[in-house]
Design a protein around this nucleic acid. Structure first.
Length: 470
DNA sequence: TTTTGAGTTGTTCGA
DNA sequence: GTCGAACAACTCAAA
């Protein structure tokens, strides 16, 4: 009897360009694909509601793909090290292969597992499947990790070389005894009552095939004009690949390798690749500051006078702030599990600056409601907006939601799509409906006057400065 | 070690 | 209405 190799899937839910799967295949041994639902190890950073919806459908897709190659995906629930130990006992596996994750809890867990496996003579191999460059590989000339994006990206981009993406295996050998698997439906990853994810299916196709289709659609119609159009939530110039990237249904390497002169201008392509660069930079930051999800990257913000208020937070979450572009974004998030990047900046700035709510509260809401919730990107981006992050927006940069709306959604099409109360308002008034002679019925009054919020935020930053001098 | 140049995404004010 | 300057100083990265 030939002993199998376990391929432990995590955030790499694809069969093409999957180094761990390819290595197991090339070994010639039977392949035992495994996914473990481990809600214990991540603690509060276990996948949120929207992410679990995505995970359910992505696992169904992966399971079908592997089934076609001749091997069933084994689903198990529990603490990863215990599940692995159990499964090795059941199957007499000789090795466990996986692709690396970079969340602090995952790094700790995987290191321990690797050490344990090696002690009992089980081969443990890990690979890079998710990043263009691993967080510890990039260093400034003085040997320190980067804290500023531009020099980080110049370094990475100029040295960016990699092997061509790996092809998907065409057939795999199953282990002789197929171990028990949980039923995906029993994991209850999708919501039932209420089914807040009802609209997600119309928007998204989780899984590797859906990721490829989304990428092709972007190459065909979205990337031309990306450099300018990416800021316009009323247009289709963004890739919408973030959830697919988060779950590893497509790799950044596959994306970069596929781009050529047929796809937009040089500028469009470089701008798009630089956005992948921000994803890389976020991982670089999380690796050097494992407490990034909680703690201000810049310590002087520890004295910042946040004014936590559950009512203000709730109204922001529900999209009832009285500022159309903010409310449109929050409602798009709730209904589709996703928000346009420009609008994310606007709603985040509004929560943190105009409403003085702690960035961690906004990050927690995003974590639960985004299908692309990613610990590195989410933490780094919220800190960037709040001003406490690496290379952050300066404190006096307070986004004005009315001006931002007029600039980036000039015809109000985005707002009207998500805020039906404003559907009949003329375009000139859609971002400031309260200025109309007869304001539209049913739309909330502004939660705070902009100049009041702005001045309060600037004053809050002043107090921080004074305390630093004391 | 010291110096130098530079730093995602903006707003407001006043000429 | 348009346009440039002010907003503030600090840290990072490289020479």
């Amino acid at each position: 009897m030939t002993r199998p190799i376990i391929v432990w899937f995590r955030q790499d839910l694809r069969i093409a360009d999957n180094p761990a799967l390819a290595a197991a295949y090339e070994s010639g041994a039977p392949v035992l694909p495994l996914y473990i639902l481990d809600d214990e190890t991540p603690g509060e950073w276990q996948p949120g509601g929207a992410s679990r919806w995505w995970l359910h459908h992505s696992l169904a897709s992966l399971s079908a793909s592997l089934g076609k190659l001749g091997v069933p995906l084994i689903l198990r629930r529990g603490k990863a090290e215990e599940v692995l130990d159990q499964l090795i006992g059941e199957t007499d596996a000789t090795g466990v292969y996986w692709n690396r994750c970079y969340e602090p809890f995952a790094i700790t867990r995987d290191k321990a597992i690797k050490a344990t496996l090696q002690e009992i003579d089980i081969e443990a191999k890990s690979f890079n499947a998710s990043l263009l460059v691993e967080p510890w590989e990039v260093r400034s000339k003085s040997g320190t990790p980067f804290k500023v994006f531009t020099p980080f990206w110049k370094t990475v981009r100029s040295q960016l070389t990699f092997d061509l993406p790996l092809p998907a295996p065409t057939i795999l050998t199953p282990s002789e005894n197929i171990p028990f698997s949980d039923q995906l439906d029993d994991w209850l990853l999708t919501p039932t009552s209420p089914d807040w994810a009802a609209g997600f299916g119309a928007q998204w196709t989780p899984g590797e095939a859906g990721a490829v289709n989304q990428f092709v659609a972007f190459l065909d119609a979205g990337i031309a004009g990306y450099a300018q159009g990416r800021d316009r939530p009323d247009r289709e110039n963004v890739s919408r690949l973030s959830p697919h990237l988060h779950w590893g249904e497509i790799s950044p390497r596959q994306i970069v390798a596929a781009l050529d002169e047929r796809h937009g201008t040089d500028k469009d392509r470089e701008k798009f690749i630089a956005e992948l660069g921000w994803r890389e930079f976020s991982y670089h930051l999380l690796y050097q500051a494992p407490d990034l999800p909680h703690k201000n990257f810049r310590a002087e913000f520890d004295t910042f006078p946040w004014a936590r208020d559950q009512d203000l937070l709730s109204r922001w979450q529900r999209g009832e702030t009285g500022y159309p572009i903010v409310d449109a974004g929050m409602r798009q998030l709730w209904h589709t599990g996703w928000m346009h990047n420009r609008v994310r900046m606007i709603v985040a700035s509004f929560l943190v600056k105009h409403l003085l709510q702690p960035w961690q509260d906004g990050a927690a809401w995003f974590w639960d409601t985004l299908v692309d919730a990613d610990l590195a990107s989410n933490s780094a981006s919220w800190q960037w907006v709040a001003g406490c992050g690496a290379d952050a927006a300066p404190y006096f940069r307070v986004f004005n939601p009315v001006l931002q709306g007029k600039k980036f959604d000039p015809d109000g099409l985005y707002v009207k799509k998500w805020v039906p109360e404003l559907a009949d308002v003329p375009a000139v008034s859609v971002h400031a409906p309260l200025e109309m002679a007869v304001p539209p019925a049913g739309y909330p009054a502004p939660i705070i006057e902009l100049s009041v919020g702005r001045n309060r935020a600037l004053a809050a930053y002043e107090t921080m400065k004074v305390e630093a001098e004391v």
